[in-house]
């Protein structure tokens, strides 16, 4: 097996007539931390769901850990997902069980380890995210940043080969944000996983990741290391990085001419 863990080749996907992804080419290697950036609705989350095999490509292939997701049956997909860890946007903790039970959940469901060993593993993972002291709290007693760290501990419980992060920085205060960012980097380097961060937080990700893909309107329009991206003259990349409201992505949604719609154009009055 090569060290390319996630491999999209000419992958397309459509919901009905609406084409979400158009001919994506994307590779992530072992130990690499990759960011996928793009505006809302550019197909980022769809991309993540395709890695987990929750969506299958209409055209092209998605290879994850050397397996073609389209050729797997349900059992195969579940086996594949055993190698994945995913941090959801708002953590997606199970609200009816405690922090400890949340982190223990994948261990109890997927392994036959004795409870004493599960306890050690859970405390270890919680310690890694600095929340061993919160083990007995319920998810609703946690702040947003803490909930996401617990979710991170849960995602790495089974030592995944590939980590996926869906908007990990959304809605966090600067301190929590920096904590999560550091954790993502450290866990990636310590566990040697291939990590994909889907985000639109430019400054944080550029200082964090090894490689960046820009996704717009279902296609990858630019990619490179953070240095290359910063130096890029590509108008979309410039608009995105500098956060200008108007540019290749127009501020206005296509509409009939303003004056005409207001009835002010000559000939109407």
């Amino acid at each position: 097996m090569s060290d390319i863990l996630v491999d999209f080749s000419h992958t397309s996907f459509a919901y009905g007539k609406q084409r979400i992804l158009k001919g994506i080419d994307l590779q992530v290697r072992k130990g690499q931390l990759v960011a996928i950036m793009g505006g809302s609705g550019s197909g980022k989350t769809t991309l993540l769901r395709m890695i987990g095999g929750q969506l299958l490509p209409d055209d092209g292939h998605v290879h994850v850990a050397g397996m073609n997701t389209s050729s797997l049956d349900e059992a195969g997909l579940y086996e594949l997902r055993g190698k994945l860890g995913m941090l959801f946007q708002f953590g997606a903790l199970f609200t009816d069980i405690s922090v400890y039970d949340n982190v223990a959940f994948p261990l109890r469901e997927r392994t036959t380890l004795p409870e004493s060993m599960i306890r050690d593993l859970v405390l270890m993972k919680l310690h890694a995210v600095g929340l061993r002291g919160a083990a007995n709290l319920m998810p609703q007693e946690l702040s947003g940043g803490m909930a996401r760290r617990v979710a991170l501990a849960r995602a790495i419980a089974l030592d995944p080969a590939i980590m996926l992060y869906d908007e990990p920085f959304t809605g966090l205060d600067p301190i929590s944000l920096a904590t999560i960012a550091t954790l993502i980097r450290e866990l990636n380097d310590a566990l040697g996983t291939a990590s994909i961060v889907v985000t639109h937080d430019v400054t944080e990700s550029l200082s964090l990741v090894d490689y960046v893909y820009f996704l717009a309107d279902g296609s990858i329009i630019a990619s490179g290391t953070p240095e290359e991206v910063r130096a890029s003259a590509h108008p979309f990349v410039q608009q995105f990085i500098n956060g200008r409201p108007d540019g290749p992505l127009p501020f206005h949604k296509p509409a009939p001419p303003y004056l005409e719609q207001l009835g002010l154009e000559a000939g109407h009055a």
Binding site: G52, Q54, Y78, E79, R81, G82, L84, G85, M86, F88, Q89, F90, A92, L93, F94, T95, F105, P106, E109, R110, A151, R154, L158, L164
Partner: peptide, 22 residues
């Protein structure tokens, strides 16, 4: 519905646990 909205079901699926069974 709440488990679906807060992506708990999707999280379960990604942990290779079938929400239908669990």
């Amino acid at each position: 519905g709440l488990m679906k909205t807060t992506e708990q079901l999707a999280a379960m699926e990604m942990m290779a646990v079938n929400p239908l069974a669990r």
